[in-house]
Design a protein around this nucleic acid. Structure first.
Lengths: 231, 231
DNA sequence: GAATAATTATGATATATATCGTAATTAGCA
DNA sequence: TGCTAATTACGATATATATCATAATTATTC
């Protein structure tokens, strides 16, 4: 079982890499002592909305999706998390339960850190707290963009956003193979699965993207950006 | 010009009231020295999206709306802020510019606190930072609810949400008089102004609410909750 | 490797909602 | 007080999108 270590190159240490380089050795030891490592198969649920928020996690292998769920079981896929990123539920310091459902979209390993120890450690580390505030503000910005997009964009714009998100922020390549189903792509875009299939075909017919099965390639990024912009 | 003082009854000190009761006297003095007080007329803009984030503010009189704006000028009204609440833009510690447009919906007084002083003061106060994290997490929860609602609810459900938000969280009464226009109500609900007018009339015809002009009364809250729930 | 389940694909239809046009009402102002 | 501008109101129409049905393909299981 690997232990958290400080990032050698701390200039890269934005919240998306290793938050924990802002801890002292002593604090790291505390965290590492209580730490658990859990393996998940594709499809398995790590956290369920409404459940108790007892741990924060760090994804060390694979990929998970963070989903909103309403009363009628309808989902929005909010974010994909990959190594090495943390998931600190927004119930932290509020109601101490989960507001999102987190599940593995491929075989995944996650490190669990007891929230009581986490809280104790960080409450004495202002530098870490400031970084955590950065992390939360990034999410607030991302969520507010999402709200604006959902409110005003049509299906094509939403699907363009989804493809750009996957290429730019998740797979960091305009060609990528994904474990996400058409239903998942629909859930990111907040449209139906049938619509997502239709629009992807349209984009393919127009030569904007290509795909077979799970392998996608963005051919005309300009067009995609334009569609995203115009809604 | 009034100065910030510690809340006498600190049990009420959640982030919605006076964040600043978590500061030491010394820190409060620092803040108060640099503090500016500005008066706005109804309709005037306090912060514009894209502008530099040089201050955080505290609303001490009146009410402001926090709006998202997209490239085409379309807006979503995200939140209403009233005394005594703070507005700490999510660009804080990130890109140091505004992501929301904030404007007065009635005559308003706001206190401006220099972000450099704010940052310096809070960076040495873990207790305050923990409260700030609470404040941010509350917003993340609120925003994620909004995303879920926008993604899945129909107009009626969205408008029901809006009326419930105003009654329960803004005016704290099922009867309230508001400065919000039908366009504002539409912008909270993320529907068009015509639709907002139509649905309000429907609710009125069904005896769920009553209103003339700006004065609203919720008559059947159960129905409204049901409509909100079913989408 | 055949059988079954799950996912992807596509068309027909129904529905929700935006857009446009215009009238009625209210607010702001000289 | 009367005039102008803004907001509210409401109907007709167009459009976007969901829903439903069903076929084709791909994945999974025995």
């Amino acid at each position: 079982m690997t232990h958290f270590v400080k990032d050698q190159d701390c200039t890269k240490c934005d919240l998306k890499s290793n938050l924990f380089c802002f801890l002292t050795d002593n604090q790291l030891d505390n965290i590492n002592e209580s730490r658990l490592e859990v393996n998940y198969k594709k499809g398995e649920v790590l956290f369920k909305k409404g459940g108790p928020l007892t741990h924060i996690i760090c994804i060390s292998k694979g990929m998970v999706k963070i989903c909103l769920e309403n009363n009628n079981g309808k989902q929005v896929l909010l974010e994909l998390i990959k190594p090495v990123e943390f998931i600190i539920g927004p119930g932290f310091l509020i109601d101490e339960h989960h507001h999102f459902t987190v599940s593995a979209i491929e075989d995944t390993r996650a490190c669990f850190i007891d929230i009581r120890i986490f809280k104790e450690v960080i409450s004495k580390n202002s530098e870490f707290l400031m970084e955590l505030i950065k992390y939360l503000n990034k999410h607030i910005i991302r969520h507010s963009d999402k709200i604006s997009n959902l409110a005003h964009k049509h299906m094509h714009g939403k699907m363009a956003d989804t493809l750009l998100y996957l290429a730019d922020e998740v797979y960091h390549s305009d060609t990528f193979e994904t474990f996400l189903s058409r239903q998942d792509l629909a859930n990111i875009s907040a449209i139906t699965k049938e619509s997502s299939i239709r629009i992807l075909k349209e984009f393919k017919d127009d030569g904007i993207i290509d795909f077979n099965n799970m392998r996608f390639e963005i051919l005309k990024k300009d067009s995609l950006l334009q569609i995203s912009k115009n809604g």
